[in-house]
């Protein structure tokens, strides 16, 4: 009786242990991604997801969808113009990208796209002004906003961006540089300050289209 209990226990414990390990493996992508941010970056690298249509109003008043940019690499970032901290770094970084990738932009193989995550407050003129703060020449750099909170939610969910209220600046979000491939998939995500790596990635992909 006792001995059979020991055997049953060992079997049961083994099953539970395996179950625990499988769950642990599954929910950390093989014990690699312990945060959602690292999970979405890993996903972009390993199984890039299709981003879909995603409508946007550009600062010039045109209506577009993300799918309209297909056929070229698009570097997408999310900002709100009230933001006085990280978004200013994003802005000057994008101006630098515009400069570094000038020839790729000119041959229409790369576009920069800035999307507002505060469509209620950011008017189209605010967006145009934001861009003008960092560059005189706006070619190759589009800026726009989703028309309402619902469309914004679609953008955020697709990219895996989470925006939450923050007392000091208004909104906190996992800001990054998102690389969308010509086929419309999110293929890489770079840290806020890592503009050179993002540019290097795009350039190497354009040079060796594997």
């Amino acid at each position: 009786m006792r001995r059979s209990d020991t055997l049953i226990t060992l079997l049961a414990a083994l099953v539970v242990l395996s179950g625990g390990l499988v769950a642990g493996y599954r929910f950390t992508d093989g014990f690699q991604a312990f945060t959602l941010e690292s999970a979405r970056r890993l996903q972009a690298m390993n199984s890039p997801r299709l981003l879909g249509e995603l409508p946007l109003e550009l600062a010039e008043g045109e209506k577009r969808t993300l799918a309209d940019w297909q056929g070229r690499y698009v570097l997408v970032d999310f900002i709100f113009t009230r933001c006085t901290t990280l978004c200013t770094a994003m802005g000057s970084g994008y101006a630098r990208l515009q400069h570094v990738l000038a020839s790729e932009i000119e041959s229409d193989r790369v576009r920069l796209l800035t999307v507002s995550i505060d469509p209620r407050r950011d008017r189209l003129t605010d967006l145009a002004e934001y861009r003008l703060r960092y560059t005189k020449d706006i070619s190759g750099w589009d800026i726009g906003r989703p028309k309402d909170e619902q469309v914004l939610a679609a953008w955020l969910t697709s990219f895996g961006v989470v925006a939450i209220p923050e007392p000091l600046t208004g909104i906190a979000h996992n800001a990054a540089i998102h690389v969308v491939a010509p086929n419309g998939r999110l293929v890489a995500i770079y840290d806020l300050g890592d503009f050179d790596s993002a540019a290097g990635y795009v350039r190497s992909k354009l040079d060796n289209p594997a």
Partner: peptide, 13 residues
């Protein structure tokens, strides 16, 4: 409880 001697199975879970 028979499958949980020393409480092992439950504690692992």
């Amino acid at each position: 409880i028979r499958a949980n001697r020393w409480g092992m199975t439950g504690l692992i879970a």
